[in-house]
Design a binder for these strands. Structure first.
Lengths: 347, 347
DNA sequence: ATGAAAGCGCTAACAC
DNA sequence: GTGTTAGCGCTTTCAT
């Protein structure tokens, strides 16, 4: 009676060490190679053998060791999601949080594992090394400053996709998926025009990054094709306070305004309070359309008409693209996601 | 002239394959074992040799291969962050998003890598297997439903820490770090009392999970020690809309209310609008204190007095604890993080 | 303090 | 279709 015989037929999800492929092979009475084939669903294995092996796997509760697999196959099955710390606020930003969610959700259905990396600027080359050190099969980079794309160069050595169009597409390496900011802003502004607004202002965003530039451009396009003046521009950064100040400056110009498009919902929220302070109503006196469709857009009073960017879809798309890139597919450098106008009460 | 001789003295951050430990050894003129020791900062290596090796490493731009290292050392250096999909909205929730951020930030300074896992309920045992299959050294679980702690049993087999107290601490396995919801709610309510409120209502949260239970308890404690009646309770779930409805019910009771504590800022936002509709002022007629200190708390009008939970600190703490657990330290099962009252204009 | 050698658990030719 | 046999790049006794 050998040790083998003593082993219970149904090994309990048991004890100490994880079962190895070799143990599965022994139990199924086949070679390790065959087990490996079954695990990797190779087509050339008899159905009977497959069943045999799968039983053994189930009985032993076998799980392949990733490190060993990766070492032997020279594939890591991991995809890094790099979040530059400057944009560490990513998680403060519902948009990015959702992108991350989309990525994770997509990858959950694949054999890839998601590696979340916060790349502080001070050790950005620790990150760089990590990425190029053969520790990941591909990378995703999300950042506010799609402008600074400091990881841009990695594109040549590793499948990588950026969230957001680089400031300078011709110059950048790698793929990116972007939201169609121009179209989003155009449609938003058109909504104002269709409503009858004829003096339409905008609180634009930072002009040193693509979204800011594109949304302003979309606003201009819409006004241009309606023959409306486009000089009512003030800039805001991020917070509602910025929006409030910009709105004050707009009102201070003394020219009547009946429509407002803002770079973000947050900016719109700030503008709301100033409009009210001025004794004006929304949308009665000034109709407003925001951008982002963030959590509070439907909450503020009146509920804000805004542009939805489907961030989880964007995240999923980014993930899908790296995976295909890893598989060697050729893919367009740019992928643009559509936006959708969400009409509520403010315009 | 061998291939060796052809190799340039300063290998450019170059080409195809990543340099291996063996290449470093060759260049430094030592054995692989020594290089390994240097890489792992073993104490017993001569300073000179260390320098030699480090030069070689720098010149070759060597990065250890994680898979190989992990296979040989039987450690993965990976920590999983499990986000049950039910709570997939985690990322919609700024609180959780920040916890994730805290975890990532903490781990960025260690040699651990963060594995983000979305565990859908349908394949929760795919996740379970993955975790127990020796693919990670430890796990972090964040969830709204800390009640269902379905990963609770893993605690025996893997270092694991939960975000949020389990519904039933005695029953649960594993460590957890929780925010002191009782104290947070108590202090918030005391603020109302100190302000002179004597008829204090609450819009409580779901009573099937710890935070909901604890915050309601904290409210009760405060009222009890001030001898104030504690029957003005209505429940809300998550959204501002829930808050609005709850507020309506509260007002419909016909009893005057001069103070309100809500389970969340979102609920408070909803209550705001109803209070206004009723022609009441904040904080004049009704002072309100929220909970979470989320992004909009300072934005709404009037800026909301609320309770800040320092979620990134909580995330960092969770990460710190798994790491110490992995290192074999003994740690208290429960860790409680403090909260802070943020006074603004609403109370 | 350093080197030699034996694996870690798996995949991938290559043979049969 | 299945088994044999080398490694993948690193850590880790065990000598020296």
């Amino acid at each position: 009676m050998t040790t083998q015989d003593i082993e219970p037929t149904r090994a309990p999800a048991s004890a100490g060490q994880s079962p190895t492929l070799e143990m599965v092979a022994a139990r199924a009475g086949v070679s390790r190679a065959t087990v490996s084939r079954v695990v990797n669903s190779s087509p050339k294995v008899t159905a009977e053998v497959v069943a045999l092996v799968q039983n053994a796997i189930a009985e032993l509760n076998y799980v392949p060791n990733r490190a060993a697999r990766s070492l032997a196959s020279r594939k890591t099955q991991v995809i890094a999601l790099v979040v530059p710390e400057s944009a560490a606020k990513v998680f403060d930003d519902p948009f990015f949080a959702s992108v991350v969610q989309g990525v994770a959700l997509y990858l959950a259905d694949t054999d890839y594992t998601l590696n979340l990396l916060i790349a502080s600027e001070t050790k950005s080359d620790k990150t760089r090394r990590y990425l190029l050190g053969g520790n990941v099969d591909g990378a995703l980079v999300v950042s506010h400053h799609s402008g600074d794309h400091s990881y841009t160069r990695l594109g040549q050595q590793l499948p990588i996709v950026f969230g957001g169009r680089p400031i300078n597409p011709e110059t950048a390496e790698g793929h990116y998926v972007d939201v169609d900011n121009v179209a989003g802003a155009r449609v938003a502004t058109q909504r104002l025009i269709e409503r009858g607004c004829r003096s339409i202002a905008t609180i634009a965003g930072p002009q040193d990054m693509p979204p800011g530039i594109d949304r302003l451009a979309g606003w201009r396009e819409a006004l241009a094709s309606a023959g409306i003046d486009d000089s009512l521009i003030e800039y805001g950064d991020y917070s509602p306070d910025d929006g409030a100040e910009a709105m004050r400056r707009l009102l201070a110009r003394g020219v009547p305004i009946d429509g407002l498009f803002t770079y973000s919902d947050q900016l719109a929220a700030g503008a709301y309070s100033v409009i009210r302070e001025a004794g004006l109503t929304i949308p009665g006196d000034i109709a407003v359309v925001g951008y982002d469709d963030d959590r509070y857009a439907s909450t503020i009073d009146p509920p804000l008409t805004t542009v939805n960017q489907a961030p989880t879809a964007m995240g999923a798309k980014m993930a899908e693209i790296v995976v295909r890139l890893i598989d060697g597919e050729e893919i367009d450098t740019a992928t643009t996601m559509p936006t959708k106008l969400v009409v509520r009460d403010s315009a």
